[in-house]
């Protein structure tokens, strides 16, 4: 096939899946709020402090084609220095306490901390045992809790929407 004939070829385009209208609606509302509070985009840094990795999987799923939250101005970044929001999962273990505090201190102001999952919010079945310190708020201040075992991508987006609505423009 030469280059000219490819101009006249009908483009191949078919929907791989049906989009979820509820998720799309809350995503667009969230985009509006992000535009208002943070000016176009927010950057999230994820920190796992003792989770069983299910919450991490759901957070990565937010970037998968079904959700693709970068459309709404949400991106996940590699360094806390680039982040506006810390998404902390899991009950904080003794071994992760120092890393969590350092990550928090490395995140520039203004910043928000969200606790994701039952263990991060309240400690879950691990509360009061030797290996853990407790929920995230026992180590660093938490602005928003999104419970669930783990919360679904839609729940996480709904939680972010609530956070953005409650936030004043800083």
């Amino acid at each position: 096939m030469n280059i000219i004939s490819s101009f006249f070829k009908k483009p191949v385009c078919r929907a791989q899946f049906a989009s979820d209208p509820v998720f799309e609606t809350s995503g667009l509302l969230l985009k509006k709020e992000i535009d208002r509070v943070f000016g176009k985009s927010i950057a999230i840094r994820e920190v796992d402090c003792g989770s069983d990795s299910a919450a991490e999987i759901e957070l990565s799923n937010l970037s998968a084609p079904h959700y693709d939250v970068e459309r709404f101005g949400i991106s996940f970044v590699a360094s806390p220095r680039h982040a506006d929001i810390l998404a902390v999962t899991g009950v904080v273990t003794h071994a992760m306490k120092e890393a969590l505090i350092k990550t928090y201190e490395a995140t520039p102001e203004p910043k928000f901390v969200i606790a994701i999952g039952d263990d991060a919010c309240a400690g879950g079945i691990f509360l009061g045992t030797y290996a853990v310190i407790g929920p995230v708020e026992s180590v660093i201040p938490v602005d928003m809790k999104i419970p669930g075992n783990p919360p679904t991508p839609a729940t996480i987006i709904a939680g972010l929407l609530t956070l953005m609505r409650s936030a004043k423009k800083r």
Binding site: A95, M96, T129
Partner: peptide
Amino acid sequence: LGYLHRGIEKL
């Protein structure tokens, strides 16, 4: 490793 040690066996 060991950062996620949550004491599962003792729990």
